[in-house]
Nucleic acid binder design. Sequence first.
DNA 1: GCTTGCGCCTGAATGC
DNA 2: TGCATTCAGGCGCAAG
Length: 283
Amino acid sequence: MPELPEVEVVRQGLDRFVVGRRIDRVEVYEPRSVRRHVAGPAEFAASLTGRTVTAARRRGKYLWLPLDDEDALVGHLGMSGQLLVQPASAPPDRHLRVRMSLSDGNELRFCDQRTFGGLLVSPHGALLPAEIAHIGPDPLDPVFDEDAFRSALRRRRTGIKRALLDQSLTSGIGNIYADEALWRARLHYARPTETLRRGEVDRLLVGVRDVLRDALGEGGTSFDALYVNVNGESGYFERSLHVYGRGDEPCDRCGTPIRRDPFMNRSSYTCPRCQPRPRRARW
DNA sequence: GCTTGCGCCTGAATGC
DNA sequence: TGCATTCAGGCGCAAG
């Protein structure tokens, strides 16, 4: 599933292979993939046709492509989305949802097995689409404000992992990287945010940034000409995971078996020794 | 206003 | 063997 580093790899691919091209033709095969474009699939296609892509931007796990009329094509990959740049002659993927023909003879294809992802056109959205204005900057973004993050975190009345997953506080962190960052910071996911000391928040920020940077470093190699993949199908980062998906395996730091707990209809992985459950737990 | 939990969706994995 | 159930996940939105 694409998290921030994977999405950044896609953005780099779009920057290289789509920016500067004109969109000549748009076909929507699955209306659900443009459900957040409230004016409907036909209007979606019409508002893109003839426009030239001028940049490729990202905030958290959202991508957007500013267009030459100051609107923007906004995309989210959801769980299984891919944005592929392929020659028009390439056979279509089984889960092809939207096809956009580019002026250089290639196509930008949105494929999505589970249709959790989607595309929309945001009017005047070139700078920052209104639809994603509520998404906070990610911890690697130069505009990320550490002091604002600290105080916002302390104002919350929730568990630390819930807060990490809340994309309005800071973005780009999903279930996997939340668990990895908490392990690095030696913090338990159920720790109430208002009890965090400054040093602990600092450790958390270091953990989050290290995880994202490590994943970014490994993900940057996974695409080549005309193929902008996202799915992490090679599982390149999996080898670097310390806790996620490693239930009952020994902790890389202390050897204690990793524990798996149910959490918000999914799982949380912790080392019971490095990340002891707080007396006052909240999740 | 803030926090919580559901529903969306498909296919792989598991259970009977 | 084959069918049914469970699980995974991000995010918007309704409910609390």
